[in-house]
Structure formats: C-alpha cells, structure tokens
C-alpha cells in the first residue's frame, strides 16, 4: 500500500519541480513568430549582404562584393567548429579601404583593433553540448566533393546569408530537422565522387542502394549512427 502511494507522489512532485524549474529558466523560444531564431544584438552590425551579396552592375557602391563565405570563415573547412574570423582578417582588407574608414561601424572596428581587443560577438547559432556538428565534413562533402556553390552549401543550414545584415538563425537546428536531410537519398558518385563498391562511400553514408538503371548514380542516405553527432 505504502509503495503504491509513494510512487505517484514522487512522480507528481518531480513533474512539478522540473516544470517549475524549466519555466523559470527563461529560454529563448524555440522559434520566433516568423519561425526564425531570435534577433541578436551585435556589437557591430556586420552587413553580410554587403560582403557576400551579388554585384549591382549599375552602381558599384550598392550591391555586394560576392566574397566567398570561406574567405572569412576559413575555419569551417578545417575544423568541426567554424569559429569566428579573427579581427586581423577584417583589418586585412579594411586597412586599405580608405573610402569607408569614416563610417561609424568601421570606426568601431578600428577601435577594437587598436585596443587589441576581440569583438564580443554574440552567438547566433549554438547547439547543446551533446551535439557535435562537424562543419568540415559538410563543406568537404558538398563543396569539395560535389562542387556545389559555397553559398548554397552553407545556406542549407545558415539560410541565404547574402541577403542578411546581422545574421539570424534560419533553421530550427533540431535533430528532426537534421534527420530530414540525412534521410534523403544523396547521389554518392557525383563529379569528383567516391568509389562505391570498394567501401568508400562518403564518410559514414549508409550503404548505397543500387538502382537497376545503371546510368543513374547510386544513391545513399546520410549518416544515421547516433554517435556521428552524439559523441
């Protein structure tokens, strides 16, 4: 009897305690009204559109400069984490672009540089510590292996950055969302592709299904082992 009484009490208590904790612990909402991540206030409003956007043929002072994402975000192809470009990177160009040196944001940039202080950027994308997303693998797969345009590949997760000023999270970055892509059939022998029969389908892609139509490239689903992300 005692035992039967005790369990529900424990359950209800725990439920209340945990809910109360979770409710008090104000987390940003999973999605905002427009379905995107929260608007993040940055110390300098970095205009992604100006850097990565398309040229405006009519007016070189408008439009973007079509800089490759990887020019600044060089770590993405080298490491699991993309990091933030060092300040030195910004200065590499801005030191010699006199025409914008008097703009408030650039002045701000110089201030940090002269003080040799890093800019305290706020995180726009963050995953819980038990998830290990690997930038390098995705860049290798889509950009180097399949020759997809860089902006497209990065855009799978980061959205159309060339249209943004301060970046904002575009995708839910939740497990179901990741899986929605990993469950798709991806061609595993695109240009620059990998051999299939000898084992080396791309990283841990699942074993490719061979179609009867030999003209079609074999397709395989993305990695689905738990440990690929939960290490």
């Amino acid at each position: 009897m005692y035992r039967y009484l005790r369990l529900p009490i424990l359950l209800v208590g725990l439920f209340l305690a945990v809910s109360a904790y979770a409710a008090n612990n104000s987390q940003p909402a999973l999605t905002t009204e427009d379905g995107l991540g929260p608007q993040v206030q940055q110390p300098i409003e970095f205009p992604h559109n100006r850097h990565a956007g398309l040229h405006d043929a009519s007016d070189p002072n408008k439009g973007g400069m079509e800089i490759n994402c990887q020019y600044c975000h060089t770590y993405a192809r080298r490491s699991a984490v993309a990091g933030i470009p060092p300040l030195q990177k910004c200065m590499g160009c801005h030191n010699s672009i006199d025409s914008v040196k008097d703009r408030p944001r650039i002045k701000e940039l110089f201030k940090y540089w002269e003080a040799k202080k890093p800019i305290p950027w706020k995180k726009v994308h963050d995953l819980p510590d038990f998830v290990r997303f690997n930038h390098e693998r995705h860049v290798k797969r889509f950009v180097e292996q399949q020759n997809r345009p860089v902006q497209e590949a990065c855009g799978y997760c980061h959205g159309d950055v060339k249209e943004m000023t301060v970046a904002r999270r575009q995708k839910p970055l939740a497990m179901g969302w990741c899986a929605s892509c990993h469950e798709k059939d991806h061609p595993v022998t695109a240009e620059g592709g990998t051999p299939v029969d000898g084992q080396a389908y791309w990283y841990s892609f699942q074993k490719p299904v061979k179609t009867s139509d030999s003209a079609l490239a074999p397709k395989a689903k993305g990695p689905n082992d738990c440990w690929q992300c939960h290490k």
Binding site: P28, P118, K122, V124, P128
Partner: peptide
C-alpha cells in the same frame, strides 16, 4: 520547452582571436 536546441542563441559571447 527545454527542448530548445539553440540554447545560447543571442546570449553567449563567442570570442574570436584578434
């Protein structure tokens, strides 16, 4: 609602190298 994935969005600072 603890199931948020992007737990530190807009909160935590990421510090780059100078």
């Amino acid at each position: 609602g603890c199931g948020n994935t992007s737990i530190e969005d807009g909160k935590e600072t990421v510090v780059s190298y100078v």
